[in-house]
């Protein structure tokens, strides 16, 4: 298995990329400007693409180079472009009525990372992988998941919610590159493609929201209750 016998260089490269992606998630959490969400997401996607390539190099999985190129193309270029088009159409520059101030959401995000670390430690301890990179990979995977959910819960703009969902997916993708690099190619390809369809659907729906609800803030979505 790859993660049990890694060279120190590889191990620190993996850690660097994983932690940098987590940092990008915190940038999203700590900002109100939608464009900075988009930049942070793009940076995160490129880091994941780089991680795929590095894992492919050190783990001798040539198909991961292919995945890296596709990740960079899909998540790093095409998705940000689609999102940019949606943002331009919306004329919404920033999150206006966040439930939590960015500062307090950063604190909650930190607590979520601690929680993710405790879970990851527990799991790795039971697998006997405590001194490997598995702890870090699981921590980053779970905390990006939790931060994505936090973003979904406290942000109201449609575009922030889409980005929250994409952070969820990025977290899974990042963790799976380190933990299960041998996952069949087909599945990774289809998941990438699936993401594209998801964002395209969101684009259409956002347009409907503009036309029929007159707003893209989920605060205005309160007709259906009970």
């Amino acid at each position: 298995m790859l993660i049990t016998h890694l060279s120190p260089v590889a191990s620190s490269l993996f850690s660097l990329l994983a932690i940098a992606s987590l940092l990008a998630a915190f940038v999203m959490l700590g900002s109100r400007w939608i464009m900075s969400y988009l930049y942070a997401f793009t940076a995160q996607s490129w880091m994941i693409a780089l991680l795929s390539a590095v894992v492919g190099y050190y783990g001798h999985y040539p198909e991961l180079y292919f995945i890296a190129i596709l990740t960079a193309l899909f998540r790093g270029l095409l998705l940000p472009y689609l999102l940019l088009r949606i943002i331009r159409r919306l004329h919404v520059a920033r999150e206006l009525q966040a439930v939590l101030q960015p500062s307090s959401s950063l604190v909650i995000g930190a607590f979520l990372v601690v929680f993710a670390f405790i879970v990851a430690r527990h799991i790795s301890a039971s697998l006997g992988l405590l001194s490997t990179i598995a702890v870090l990979a699981l921590t980053v995977m779970l905390s990006m998941k939790l931060i994505g959910f936090l973003m979904l819960a406290i942000r109201h703009e449609a575009i922030s919610q889409i980005l929250g969902l994409l952070v969820l997916e990025n977290g899974i993708f990042l963790g799976s590159q380190i933990l299960v690099p041998g996952m069949p190619l087909l599945i990774e390809l289809v998941i990438l493609f699936d993401l594209l369809v998801v964002v395209a659907s969101f684009g259409v729906l956002v347009r409907y929201l503009m036309v029929h609800v007159g707003s893209t803030s989920s605060r205005e979505l309160k007709r259906l209750v009970g």
Binding site: L165, G214, S218, L221, R223
Partner: peptide, 27 residues
């Protein structure tokens, strides 16, 4: 209508977020 668009939006956001947990579990 406004209601059906609202329902569609809530549906896709909540279910996509939920089902991503299933992907994590699968991995």
């Amino acid at each position: 209508g406004a209601e059906s668009t609202e329902a569609a939006w809530k549906y896709i956001i909540i279910v996509s977020a939920g089902i991503s947990l299933a992907l994590l579990g699968t991995i």
